[in-house]
Structures are given as C-alpha cells and as structure tokens.
C-alpha cells in the first residue's frame, strides 16, 4: 500500500547525514598499495563513500517500488497521494503494512549494506596486509 515510504524516508535521512559527513570529512587517507603489480598511491574510500552505497540502494529501490504502487493504483498524483489515506480503515491497514513490510525492507537493505561494508573492510585490510608497498 505504501511500504516504500519507509525506505524512502530512510533514504532522505541518510542522504542528509552523508552530505553533512562529506563536509566534515578531512582529506581522504592516503595509502600505498600494489595494484596489478605496480606500487601506487591511492586514497582509501571515506565512510561517506560507503554510506553512498546505502543511499543508492534505498533510493533505487524506493523509486522502482513507487512505480509499482502507481501501477497498482495505490499512489495517485492528487492529494492525499495515497489512495488508502482517504479511508480510515484502509489507512490503518496501510500504517500496519508500513510498520511491518516497510520497516522490514529498510532493515534488510541496511543489513545488506552493513555486510557490504564488512566485506569491503576485510578486502581493504587483506590488500594492505598481503601486498605492502615498498615506500
């Protein structure tokens, strides 16, 4: 009914947090690493860069799910935009769906992102440990 609203709200919040973080972040950490057998100076991806993965997933999913809701006639281009919002019984059902399905969507996307951050940290550490560049 309107489950995509929950991840969309999370997307807005995380985008704002990322923008603030980008402004506060200092120069990205410089790392010496061997890439394809050639020692190179690289910049480690800042946390805001990894946070962008989360906003990309949330925005991408929310946009396509919003289209699905338009397809099913649950979202309309006139006030109150959500067809379920005009009827109290439907509105209650919609809120229940947002609290269950919507929250689960946001949680799953965030968990997948956390896993991506974890795996990327392991890859970064392994790269630095296995092939330390000679300075």
């Amino acid at each position: 009914m309107a489950c995509f609203v929950v991840p969309a709200v999370e997307a807005i919040v995380v985008t704002v947090v990322r923008k603030v973080m980008e402004k506060k972040e200092k120069q990205p950490e410089e790392v010496d690493i061997v890439l394809d057998g050639v020692p190179e100076k690289t910049h480690k991806m800042p946390f805001s860069g990894k946070l962008k993965w989360l906003t990309n997933l949330l925005w991408g999913g929310s946009v396509l799910l919003a289209f699905e809701h338009v397809w099913h006639g649950e979202v309309v281009p006139w006030f109150p935009f959500l067809t379920a919002a005009s009827d109290p019984a439907d509105a209650a059902e919609m809120l229940h769906e947002m609290a269950t399905v919507g929250v689960s969507m946001a949680v799953l996307v965030t968990l997948v992102w956390l896993a991506m951050v974890g795996v990327s940290s392991v890859i970064e550490k392994r790269a630095l440990k296995a092939e330390p560049a000679k300075v």
């Binding site: 489950c3 995509f4 991840p7 993965w53 990309n56 997933l57 949330l58 925005w59 991408g60 999913g61 929310s62 946009v63 396509l64 799910l65 969507m105 799953l108 996307v109 997948v112």
Partner: peptide, 11 residues
C-alpha cells in the same frame, strides 16, 4: 543500485 535495491525490497 536500482535493481538490487528493488530486488531486496521485493524479496
């Protein structure tokens, strides 16, 4: 990003 985001949500 678009397709993975939507796939997770539809899952």
């Amino acid at each position: 990003w678009l397709f993975w985001g939507a796939s997770l949500m539809w899952l």
